[in-house]
């Protein structure tokens, strides 16, 4: 058994799966390039993403396991959980056996775990639809974020529908990747800037107004900071305009 290393993209992962099915091979581990393999002595195979192979498998899976199951697989992949790839592989194998009934088998531990991964991504996406904070930076709007999952591919459609006549950019600071919208379409691009924080007086003015609103809107004798942190974990505070600077995570 071998260890497979790919570029981290969904296409790359499907290429790995494609090879495994072709060779009827069982992997020892599959992981993204750059994620440290944990002292395996096994043979390592580097797989380059191959769109043609990925497409073939993609379509085959849609036919065999339903498009919904494939969507779930994609979402679960974006969770970027450690060793998640092996679970995704098991899921696809199980899909080969169960076909269209795969997602009905909620009692199967392998299916349940992939659903949970996908759910985690969906939930974080939903949260970030609200927590993205744009700063007006000259001619465009800029929003730094640091989500646990790789959310950028899931945010483009939403913000393009909402702000079709603005130029904007959402920057995943941790992953050094940006989602850019140019008033026509959105695309992903590597982005290695450190998160920018200073935007001048006009932006500062509106940030101040928002902080004012946020502070005033809480009803004093209903205080419930536990619930607040539950819904809006502290790790998300770093880039939130409404949190007073002193309370944000260090580095912001």
């Amino acid at each position: 058994m071998r260890v497979y290393v790919y570029d981290g993209s969904f296409e790359g992962l499907l290429t790995v799966f494609h090879g495994l099915f072709r060779d009827k091979a069982q992997p020892l581990a599959i992981h993204r390039r750059g994620v440290a393999a944990q002292g395996f002595l096994a043979e390592t195979v580097e797989v380059e993403a191959d769109p043609a192979k990925a497409d073939t498998l993609y379509e085959a899976m849609e036919r065999r396991m339903t498009p919904r199951a494939v969507r779930l697989l994609y979402l679960a992949h974006l969770s970027e959980e450690r060793d998640g790839e092996m679970r995704l592989f098991a899921f696809v194998c199980r899909g080969g056996q169960l076909g269209e009934r795969l997602l009905d088998d909620l009692g199967d531990p392998g299916v349940a775990v992939v659903m949970r991964m996908a759910n985690r991504v969906e939930r974080e996406r939903e949260r970030f639809l609200g927590l993205v904070r744009f700063r007006e930076a000259g001619t465009f709007f800029y929003a730094p974020i640091e989500p646990a999952c790789r959310l950028l591919p899931l945010l483009g459609d939403h913000f393009a529908r909402r702000f079709p006549s603005m130029k904007w950019m959402i920057h995943d600071v941790g992953r050094k990747e940006a989602l850019v919208y140019d008033e026509e379409e959105w695309y992903l691009t590597p982005c290695d800037l450190p998160g920018v924080t200073d935007f001048g007086p006009r932006e500062e003015h509106y940030q101040h107004l928002w902080r004012t609103y946020f502070a005033v809107a809480a009803v004093e004798n209903r205080k419930n900071p536990e619930r607040q942190r539950n819904r809006m974990p502290k790790k998300t505070w770093k880039w939130l305009v409404e949190i007073p600077r002193g309370k944000r995570e260090p580095g912001a």
Binding site: P164, S165, A218, R222, K223, R227, Q228, E242
Partner: peptide
């Protein structure tokens, strides 16, 4: 739906923040 200007509304509604009383901030109230 967006009509060429700014904004749209989603059937599920979105929370944008949570104040210290743990309530969701969705609309400028």
């Amino acid at each position: 739906k967006n009509a060429g200007g700014t904004g749209n509304a989603g059937p599920a509604g979105i929370c944008h923040s949570w104040t210290e009383d743990g309530r969701c901030v969705s609309l400028l109230k």
